[in-house]
Amino acid sequence: MRSIEGNGKCDLHTHTRASDGMNSPTENVLLAKDKGLSGIAITDHDTVAGVAEALEAGLEAGILVVPGIEISTSAEGKDIHILGYGLNFTDQLLLERLDQLRTTRESRNEMILAKLRGLGMSITLQEVKDGLGRPLLPDESIGRPHIADAMVRKGYADNLRDAFNRFLGEGQLAYASVPRIAPEEAMMWIRDAGGAPVLAHPGLYGDDNLVRKIMENGKPSGIEVYHSDHGPKEEMRYLEIAREYGLIPTGGSDYHGVRQGVVFHGDIGSRYVPIETVAQLKETTN
């Protein structure tokens, strides 16, 4: 085992091909090392399938890898994402709960594809899976970026952003919402597995009153202040909310990899927090 190296910065929000990222967990770890980071969290959607590989790669590379997840929830008609850090990714109850969520995600995918077909875009789930270029593993999941990839390949969208802006984003023509667990329940799941829950990218919800309700009802350990889709004004606003509620300010790039030459949402290390933040989050689980 090598000692932790790097610049003392940690990107606490990255995705791998275990959900809707483009890279393997090992590739994300090595990219973090190339960027000079000291740490990285693997936070795939509704799955921890990439964590074990990333931990092994981190030991080899001298990079701290934080076991994480991003759980899909809903509140007041909005999709809300809850990050979890330092959880026991082998916890059997957690794995059973996540399996239920992936079933919900599959239902949403079929609803999206049905809406696209209604708009004259002939895309099947098998075509989306074929775009992976490899078999989908049992604990991996398909998400909207995979569908966007298929749309671009078939000429229905110019690029990933175009697919989301016109069809797949919240409120757009092919957007689909399915019943999900509440943010407070996801936070409970994370705590049950020994982790620290954090509200992800609050600026994307466009409703700070709802953000405050989630803070008050769920009592998370932290709030994601620094995110690729937050500008300076959002960072200042959510840093103030973090102080108001006594929460740990966290941050990360929300890196999903490169699709059609575009990095989505941001490059690894473009948003970060001091590595000491990881220890602060851990303290909230004791």
Results as ranks from 00 to 15, higher is better:
Arg259Ser: 12
Lys282Glu: 14
Asn217Val: 02
Leu137Arg: 15
Asn217Gln: 08
Met188Arg: 04
Ala75Tyr: 02
His81Glu: 02
Pro249Arg: 09
Trp189Cys: 00
Asn109Phe: 01
Val263Ala: 13
Gln280Ser: 14
Glu185Leu: 11
Glu283Ala: 15
Glu240Asp: 14
Ala61Tyr: 02
Leu113Gln: 05
Arg153Phe: 07
Gly62Gln: 09
Tyr238Ala: 01
Ile241Asn: 02
Asp91Met: 11
His45Lys: 01
Leu119Val: 03
Pro274Gln: 11
Leu132Ile: 09
Arg161Trp: 12
Gln260Cys: 08
Ile40Asp: 06
Leu101His: 13
Arg180Trp: 08
Ala163Lys: 06
His227Asp: 05
Gly266Ile: 09
Arg144Gly: 09
Ala186Glu: 07
Asp34Met: 09
Tyr85Pro: 07
Arg259Cys: 02
Gly266Cys: 07
Ile42Ala: 00
Asp91Arg: 10
Leu204Asn: 03
Gly218Ile: 04
Gly246Met: 09
Ile181Ala: 07
Lys115Asn: 13
Pro197Met: 09
Arg17Cys: 00
Asp207Thr: 13
Lys282Ala: 15
Asp130Tyr: 01
Gly222Trp: 05
His45Ser: 01
Arg153Gly: 03
Cys10Trp: 03
Ala242Met: 08
Leu247Met: 12
Leu132Phe: 15
Ala54Glu: 05
Ser270Leu: 00
Asp20Lys: 01
Arg105Tyr: 12
Ile190His: 03
Ala174Lys: 05
Ser72Thr: 04
Glu70Pro: 02
Asp254Pro: 10
Lys213Glu: 14
Asn23Ala: 04
Val262Gly: 02
Leu31His: 05
Phe167Ser: 01
Thr277Ile: 14
Lys233Ser: 13
Ile80Asn: 02
Glu76Ile: 11
Ser221Met: 09
Leu95His: 03
Leu204Lys: 00
Ala200Gln: 01
Ala186Thr: 10
Leu95Asp: 07
Ala114Asp: 11
Tyr156Leu: 05
Ser270Pro: 04
Ile40His: 11
Asn28Gln: 01
Gly195Lys: 12
Thr90Asn: 12
Gly62Ser: 08
Leu64Arg: 03
Val225Leu: 13
Tyr238Lys: 01
Ala61His: 08
Ala75Leu: 04
His230Leu: 09
Ser270Arg: 02
Pro197Asp: 05
Pro145Arg: 03
Pro249Cys: 13
Lys35Phe: 13
Glu106Phe: 07
Arg237Tyr: 06
Asp130Gln: 12
Leu31Pro: 01
Pro220Lys: 07
Leu204Arg: 04
Val48Trp: 05
Tyr175Trp: 05
Val278His: 12
Thr14Asp: 06
Arg97Gly: 03
Val273Pro: 04
Asp162Val: 08
Val51Glu: 08
Ile241Val: 15
Val262Asp: 12
His230Arg: 03
Thr103His: 15
Arg259Thr: 09
Leu137Lys: 15
Asp20Val: 07
Asp44Val: 02
Ala176Met: 05
Asp11Ala: 13
His13Thr: 08
Pro220His: 07
Leu83Cys: 06
Met236Arg: 14
Tyr255Leu: 03
Ala176Gln: 02
Pro67Glu: 10
Val51Ser: 09
Glu184Ser: 06
